[in-house]
Design a protein around this nucleic acid. Structure first.
Length: 465
RNA sequence: GGUCUCUUGGCCGAGUGGCUAGGCACCGGUCUGCAAAACCGUCUACUCCGGUUCGAAUCCGGAAGAGACCUCCA
């Protein structure tokens, strides 16, 4: 069985996961699921950054997690663990499969120090005041720093901002491989150069190399990580072992709100918990995890995706329609002749996935299948037994397995609710039989207030919510 | 300021030279005591100006607008 190694930059665990985190989570879950479906054995590594990110100048280079910890008077690892748990909880709710390995940066300090040593030995880094910096200018003499993001060194040197602490560096573009800890910095480790902490970019080089080797198949992450993070990973890999780290880079685009990137720094993000509870001024209502998942998959991962209540509600209704069709399919009796071409739909689904994981195209095919199913249920199309098997296979494979959609109404409570509802509807039917519409309407209105929809038909009433 | 990207119908969003996705909303129909829901159908767009071509949303040039990165960020 062919193997695939995939490394994706995971979250920095100093805040609650927001909609922005859902996108790479779901995007690379789609890749993971599809590659597995095709028969690849995938080792999917998604790191957790629990050390090393520097704050901006206002925080004097203090580690984000350490800062939060001092404010809250608890251990930094306690903060990290709290947000790791939160992250995993919400990814689970979004039906994002757990990666094969979820390494933490704090657990790989030795590996990071080793790579820094290698880069120093190769002559592409220098020690300054107990910190180690990557020498971008030296590296650029024999390599292209900017190969991934399309940058040119001269431009970078001309445009990089001047920040505090730059005087330790030979050039403003040089980035830290190891940082000496200031006295108040409580996350610290011993190293040959100082008691300190690793730079941001080195953790991914260390952990991807450890678990996937010097070169692996796919490296993923958000588009905002392209520069400088991934560019620097390339440089670190080239400087330490002379190879490009990844054969393919996949970057998911951003989610925007009012046309602007939804992000921590802009303060315009909505957390996943807020989506699920509806507890945010920008939300008209709560949205379920599957609505969020479907909303994200309805756009191609490379494009920006604009958040709005209208778009979320459109996704919610559309998804409901697909799931209803799946139930309708169970009720359809096969015909001798077929009036539709279901294998064509199946082929189109594979074509779409093979064309750079084009999930919106897959979804469009599923809606075509839905129209066929509903028409067949209406007697306007005919399906053979083979057609029905094929349609079931399409939904099971693409909607459930690959897009990772699950029917949220299939909980334990549902059985009880069903029985209660049946009783209520029986009572209402009696009232209707007696032409007591005041009573039947009272029941229906009360249910409507609970967001339960009653559907009257010739064969009696059904309900849904 | 530098580098890059984008601009599709009321909204969201595929599509990269001809065969004019899809969803939501609207509207029409079926169903119904009424209504809602559900289902079916309809609605034919590609920022603007030039150019290439038999033919352009799609390629080339220009303009306008928006965004991303250059600093932590998914």
């Amino acid at each position: 069985m062919p193997h695939v190694g995939m490394y994706v930059c995971g979250p920095t665990v100093y805040g609650d996961p927001h909609l922005g985190h859902a996108r790479p989570g779901i995007t690379f879950d789609l890749v993971f699921r599809y590659l597995k479906h095709l028969g690849y054995k995938v080792r999917y590594v998604r790191n957790i950054t629990d050390v090393g990110h520097l704050e901006n100048d206002a925080d004097s280079g203090e580690d984000k997690i350490a800062k939060k910890a001092r404010l809250e008077q608890i251990e930094p690892m306690e903060v990290a663990q709290y947000y790791i748990d939160r992250y995993q909880k919400f990814m689970d709710l979004l039906n994002v499969l757990r990666p094969s390995i979820e390494p933490r940066a704090s657990g790989h300090i030795m590996e990071q120090i080793d790579i820094v040593k290698e880069i120093l030995d190769a002559g592409y880094a220098y020690v300054s005041e107990g910190s180690v910096y990557f020498d971008v200018k030296k590296y650029s003499e024999s390599n292209h720093y900017g190969i991934l993001s399309g940058r040119v060194l001269e431009d970078l040197l001309a445009t990089t901002r001047q920040l505090d602490g730059q005087e330790e560096k030979r050039n403003s573009v040089d980035f830290a491989l190891w940082k000496k800890a200031s006295p108040e910095h409580i996350m610290r480790w011993d190293s040959p150069w100082s008691v300190g902490f690793p730079g941001w970019h080195i953790e991914c080089t260390a952990m991807s190399t450890k678990y996937l080797g010097e070169q692996f198949d796919i490296h993923g992450g958000g588009m905002d990580l392209l520069f400088p993070h991934h560019e620097s990973e390339v440089a670190q890999a080239m400087a330490s072992h002379g190879t490009q780290p990844a054969k393919y880079w996949i970057h998911n685009n951003m989610i925007t709100i009012n046309g602007q990137k939804m992000g921590k720094s802009l303060g315009n993000f909505i957390t996943l918990e807020e989506f699920f509870t509806g507890n945010n001024v920008n939300l008209e209502k709560a949205y379920s995890p599957m609505t969020i998942r479907f909303f994200i998959l309805q756009a191609h991962y490379r494009g920006t995706l604009d958040f709005s209540n209208e778009a979320l509600q459109a996704a919610e209704k559309g998804l409901k329609r697909l799931l209803e069709a799946l139930k309708t399919l169970e009720k359809i009796n096969p015909s001798a002749v077929s009036s539709v071409n279901t294998t064509e739909i199946e082929n189109q689904c594979y074509d779409a996935m093979n064309d750079d994981f084009n999930s919106p195209m897959v979804i469009a095919q599923l809606f075509d299948a839905t129209r066929i199913i509903n028409s067949a249920n209406d007697g306007k199309e005919t399906l053979t037994a083979e057609d029905i098997i094929c349609l079931k296979r399409i939904f099971a494979t693409f909607l459930i397995d690959i897009l990772g959609i699950e029917d949220e109404q299939s909980g334990n409570q549902l059985q009880l609710i069903n029985e209660l509802m049946q009783m209520i509807l029986d009572v209402r039917q009696i009232a209707k039989d007696n032409k007591d519409y005041a009573t039947s309407d009272k029941i229906r209105n009360a249910l409507t207030a609970l967001n339960i929809v009653v559907k009257d038909s010739k064969d009696g009433a059904t309900w849904s919510f």
